[in-house]
Design a protein around this nucleic acid. Sequence first.
DNA 1: TCCCACATGCTTTTT
DNA 2: GCATGTGGGA
Length: 660
Amino acid sequence: MVDRSSEITGDTIVSEQDWLRRLDRELNQAQYEFVTLSAPAILGLAGPGSGKTRALMYRAAHLIKNGVPPGSMMLLTFTNKAAGEMKERLEKLIGYLPKGLWAGTFHSTGARILRRHAPLLGRTGQFTILDEVDSNRLLRQLVDSLPFKIDRDGRNLLLKRRFLEKVISRHRNSNLTVEQVILEYYPRQVEYTELIERLGRMYTERKRESNSFDFDDLLICWRDLFRDHPRVKAEYRERFRHLLVDEFQDTNRIQAELVDQFAGAASICVVGDDAQSIYAFRQAEVKNIVTFPDKYPRCQVIRMERNYRSTPEIVSLADRSIAINREQLKKKLYSSNPPGEKPVLVQARDVYQEASLVGYLVGELHSFGVPYKEIAVLYRSSYLSSGVEFELMRRQLRYRTFGGLRFLQKGHIKDVTAYLRVLYNPEDRVSWQRVVTLQPGIGEATFETLWKEWSRFPDRLQAMLSGKVSPPRGAAGWERLRETYLDLVTPGLTLPAMIDIVLQKNYDAILEKSYPDQFEERRQGIERLADYGARFASLGQFLDTISLDDSIYSDGSLPSTDRGFLTLSTIHSAKGKEWEAVFVIGLNEGQFPSSRIDSSLVEEERRLFYVAVTRARRYLYLLSYRQDHRQWGAAPLIPSLFLRELPPETYQVLEPDPEF
DNA sequence: TCCCACATGCTTTTT
DNA sequence: GCATGTGGGA
């Protein structure tokens, strides 16, 4: 019997010299320094394609090779995709994913910590994570339940465009008061300040009663947990001696505060690129990365400026574009790759010609030997993808989309998960309401009455199963629901079996009635959810994963598992990725930069453009079109500011054949 | 109080 | 083109 841990230790000792030689061979000087440096704080400032995630993972591997227990390391990043990337690379580097290592998004790590200490925050470990749809519903109910009437205009104003949600979230994420947020972003609505403060307090209380947290809470309550419970904080400071944070430019104030909690106890190593900060709409603060060295006095700053990804032509175009931004840390990005073709600008007649040009050029690239999986089409907003999607379908090319419409946020999928959520967390009012009001004859008002009656029982699920509560009307639907749950509480059910019960006993009939023409399609979506659920050992794990990671897409498979597919992606979702050939479409003024942003955000949009073009290794196509038939005002479009301002020597123009 | 039919307006971007 | 909002009838 071989003890696996000693095997690894043995391996470490034997290969230490090999490992150092390998670092020397595979890293440049800046990277080598970054990986092997020992300091209380390290900032890796790195341009696109300079291998910053790679360097960060070499650092993690290096620590492990030097005997640092993986259980004392925490790897954090912002998106699920980046988190997946980190784990994948680390596993490739050292051959296995170390046990005990914490690697994930800030939000999933927050959820993990909060589950362990939930009672300190008035929750149980089975708390529900509310997504935006849920929390908006909750707020909507609170507005309607105010003990006084607000006039219709006021109600509309509060609920339209997620105004209320945004004010509360901004306030909580920024440490500004509600009044300051309103004065800064919505000065005309200042009269609503008190009302919003009141609703904010009601919202906090309602979440506690429902044993749930929203996305913001996963970070804010984590911070507050450490603030209010020094012993808990000490426990984590004791355990985690190395924090490694990727994409640090995308952190918001709360996330930066969370990292600060470990100051002095752990070595804190962050990497990022201020020029790729594209999450301001989520209160990401570039200043977190800019001021990092000031905040941590003995901080070492390493610059990684050599680009390994792209041709000099692409790097030059990107560099000239980003240079127009005034707010940035100066970096001198350079590529020593062999020269390639200049990026190509194409102005199409309309969205259809743009799409067929993409289709045609994809075919050309493929015939030159560029595999489909090395080609990506990127866009500012997900609705811009439909033209190209249609064209690819016509050409029978397989593709995969990232970003955009959420599979899990579709009504019927949320319905099915609500049935399961209340099993796990019977206090979950939002989900109960969803399930109960689905039944014919039961609406909001009936649910309110029922809920009051129901709350007299210590366990809502038991109370329902025993038949001790019933709504004032809609008895038939309630009874069917009760029978469904009698089956669902059978011990040992798999997730597909549970979903099957929900469908057979209750939801199928409801679905058919509400979507007579889309019944089959939606039902198939639910079946894919069931298939996906089969891989989970427990309901809790399944619910946690689908609340925090929306990466099951409408085709039901997971990203990055298949080869031979083209990629269609929003630019946000493409961050951190690279392809041999990249098309950026819809580069029209009004679409990108989006016309709904105010002028102060143009630099952010330019950073987004910068992210888009630096995804390409050898071939870059920038497409715009003159006419949009889809919009009402068929005013001619002009090319994006980001194309117009490019120096002509950075690109070549391709004139589409008018016959095409 | 609920439900259906119709109108509206909306599309950033992620957790 | 699709979810959410409104209004009248049961």
